[in-house]
Design a protein around this nucleic acid. Structure first.
Length: 413
DNA sequence: ACGACTGCATCTACCACAGATCTTT
DNA sequence: AAAAAGATCTGTGGTAGATGCAGTC
């Protein structure tokens, strides 16, 4: 803090509004963003307390400061003793939260509510929260799912939040996630800050509920299918990835959910980053640093495809949507328009080129593997093929002589 | 340096047939 | 327009053969 609010020019700025590209004090934040329904949807987060110019996305528990990605990287570089500092992701929010509500979002947050009762304080339930990213949050005025949300989770009554409109977590990709992936030592961890309910990070939502929505069988997740559907976008994303855009896209977020062991997390990622954050710690421990990048890129692709799917499935915004439609909705906007303007221009040089090459190599290798991975579409046909008799590998007519019987592994001739 | 040969890995075509899909009546 | 019948297409797994590549002589 220490910088002056862009709006009143009087109070020290505290939060950063990406949509307005403005640093605001808490009072002005509420005043400005209570003006209309659109402004209420602006996604805000804390201002980086180091550079005072970028939105913070993590908070260092040791130093007790909120940091943007740049400052986090610089301050917690693996070569420094600070690299083991425990950091927590900072969620963005929208709506018009009171300082009390902010305190409930950010447990570390305490700010005297000097602004008094604002008009929008009566609409507490309108506030929505997303994790660590610019959120395209639930539109409080329209009872529909926001266009980039695969899953919107409503908070239950136990959470001291107004029922009905609810605080919502939206499933949005993390653009510039925590730099945990490549350089971060094992001891450095990120945890999700908001504590809506003490008993669970996702109140009112059971794991079953989540996975019902994330039923992988429900949609064909085969990458090629999505490439057919969203070829341009995916091609672009692959370009980004192969040209080092991996880092540009997702920073060094630990997408370390190994495919085999953390499939659920990967699957959930596209639909709810929040869920991933919840699952992530367990997965992170299991995954080696070497596997992290490849897993991450797969996850990225997964997200892209899933995300695209979500956009088509759940919203009025479909393939016809313009890039502007995605301007404030996460990865999609990046896919369409490249790196978002708020991203600190440091990623290309901050990752060693050898590491990048390794990562790209692993990505290509895994992509190759996945591309040719056989996927049985008709189990009934597989079942028949599994029991069908053959001659030199070829199916034979029923009753004909065979040299291979899959059932008893015998040969008739 | 160049061609022939070997060994290994990868890719592709083939088969029958139930069920899905399309076309015709 | 709706239904039924018929024709055509699709996909399934193990194997052999084709192909490509690297190494050796």
């Amino acid at each position: 803090m220490g910088y002056i609010c862009d709006f009143c020019g009087d109070q020290p700025s505290l939060v950063y509004c990406r949509s307005d590209a403005a640093c605001l004090c808490l009072s002005c934040d509420r005043n400005v963003h209570s003006a209309n329904a659109l402004s209420k949807r602006h996604s805000r987060t804390l201002l980086c307390e180091r550079c005072n110019s970028q939105p913070a996305f993590v908070r260092c528990a040791e130093e007790k400061v909120a940091l943007c990605q740049n400052c986090d990287w610089m301050g917690h570089d693996a070569s420094t003793s600070n690299s083991t500092h425990k950091r927590q992701t900072i969620n963005s929010y929208s709506g018009c939260p009171s300082s009390g509500e902010l305190s409930s979002i950010w447990s570390f947050f305490s700010q005297p509510d000097s602004a008094g009762e604002s008009a929008c304080e009566q609409e507490l339930g309108l506030m929505s929260i997303s994790e660590n990213i610019e959120s395209t949050s639930w539109d409080p005025t329209v009872n529909t799912i926001s266009h980039n949300s695969a899953v919107v989770v409503e908070v239950n009554d136990d959470c001291n939040v107004d029922k009905g409109s609810g605080w919502t977590r939206t499933s949005i990709p993390e653009h510039r996630p925590a730099p945990q992936l490549l350089d971060q030592p094992a001891g450095s961890t990120y945890t999700s800050l908001p504590k809506f309910c003490p008993q669970t990070k996702y109140p009112g939502l059971s794991e079953d509920d989540l996975y019902d929505d994330f039923n992988i069988d429900e949609v064909d997740l085969n990458l090629e299918n999505y490439e057919e559907l969203f070829g341009v976008t995916l091609n672009h994303s692959e370009e980004l990835l192969e040209n080092g855009g991996i880092d540009s896209l997702f920073g060094t977020k630990d997408m370390s959910a190994a495919d085999s062991t953390c499939q659920g997390a990967v699957a959930a990622e596209g639909s709810s980053i929040g869920l991933v954050n919840a699952i992530q710690p367990a997965c992170s421990n299991a995954a080696s640093a070497d596997s992290v990048m490849s897993n991450k890129t797969d996850s990225i692709l997964y997200f892209m495809t899933k995300h695209a799917h979500s956009s088509l499935s759940f919203s009025g915004l479909t393939g016809e949507s313009s890039a502007g439609d995605y301007q404030d909705c996460g990865a999609s906007s990046m896919l369409l328009m490249g790196e978002p303007p708020w991203c600190p221009p440091c990623t290309e040089s901050s990752i060693p080129s050898a590491t990048r090459s390794d990562a790209v190599m692993r990505y290509k290798e895994k992509k190759k593997t996945r591309k040719f991975e056989k996927r049985v579409r008709y189990a009934s046909r597989k079942a028949r093929a599994d029991v069908r008799k053959r001659v030199k590998g070829r199916f034979v007519k029923a009753g004909d002589a065979y040299d291979y019987d899959p059932l008893n592994q015998t040969r008739s001739c």
